[in-house]
């Protein structure tokens, strides 16, 4: 990377990027410092159910008398954990498969990519549901399910990137030197795919947050007493007419995070993606 980072330039340039970054950092802080920030224990019943906001319970209490704010804060941890780990699973799995498919071509390529096509044919949430039906519900399994659901897209992206790189002279030069396949991949292919893959993963974080919320809403994600935004909406919606806060607050939390992550992904793409950027003149 050059000394003058394109990421810093993008942050300086765009107000939207600044806002998205601020919001994401805020969510991160809340997620990381959750146990210290939350005023109460998120799983104990501390008061009467569905109390309106008060000095002790800033957002009121939920349908069985737990502090809504504390549950929201703990829900952020769940959302982030799932989003990052699921994205990592998808990225690593997809990148490795795409790299192998493009590099070794032929039957290996066909076998991998046709399998990916089959996976792609399922809508993301449906695929995650099917995987959870096999693995059983729970935080870890939700992460794995969401991660696997992301693999085909990463694999396709990586395959395309590597195919275009394989025709380049520096890869040919590495082979001419006698470099092993592993060295060609590690030193001459993978580093060039990082910007594109990173940009795509950022945009996939938001998708993972949404899918996790969807699974938890259906009761297939995080197991109940643990707070998760999707689960909170599911239980809160029964009280929509009397205590709308129970469903609206986690809904807004999801919306804000997804919005921030999407904007951040777009900004990162503007800053990094070599395909969208005009070639910078060489000195």
């Amino acid at each position: 990377m050059t000394a003058r980072s394109p990421i810093l330039a993008e942050i300086r340039r765009s107000r939207i990027t600044q806002a998205a970054l601020l919001l994401t950092v805020l969510y991160c802080v809340v997620a990381l410092a959750g146990p210290w920030l939350a005023p109460h224990d998120p799983t104990s019943m501390l008061a009467m159910p569905r109390r309106p906001p008060s000095e002790r319970f800033w957002l009121g209490t939920d349908e069985i008398g737990r502090d809504l704010l504390s549950r929201l804060i703990h829900g952020a941890r769940v959302a982030f954990t799932v989003a990052f780990l699921a994205t990592a699973i998808g990225l690593l799995g997809g990148a490795v498969l795409g790299l192998i498919a493009a590099y070794f071509a032929g039957y290996i390529d066909s076998a991998i990519m046709r399998t990916m096509d089959i996976l792609l044919a399922f809508p993301g949430l449906l695929l995650a549901l099917a995987i959870i039906a096999i693995l059983g519900p729970g935080l870890t399994n939700a992460m794995i399910a969401i991660g696997i659901g992301g693999i085909p897209e990463y694999a396709r992206l990586m395959r395309g990137e590597v195919l275009s790189l394989l025709g380049r002279d520096h890869v040919l030069a590495a082979r001419a030197m006698g470099a092993s396949d592993l060295r060609v991949m590690w030193r001459h292919l993978i580093p060039f795919t990082v910007p594109t893959m990173l940009v795509y993963s950022t945009s996939q974080l938001a998708r993972a947050v949404l899918t996790e919320a969807g699974l938890s809403y259906l009761g297939l994600g995080v197991e109940p007493p643990t707070a998760s935004w999707g689960g909170m909406i599911a239980t809160g919606q029964a009280h929509m007419l009397t205590t709308p806060m129970l469903a609206i607050a986690p809904g807004l939390a999801i919306m804000g995070l997804v919005f921030a992550l999407n904007m951040l992904g777009d900004s990162l793409r503007d800053a990094l993606d070599p395909h969208q950027r005009p070639v910078v003149g060489r000195q």
């Binding site: 380049r168 002279d169 520096h170 040919l172 030069a173 590495a174 030193r187 001459h188």
Partner: peptide
């Protein structure tokens, strides 16, 4: 190689 920039890993 013909194109020196393309043939070197940047």
């Amino acid at each position: 190689f013909q194109d020196p920039l393309a043939s070197l890993n940047r």
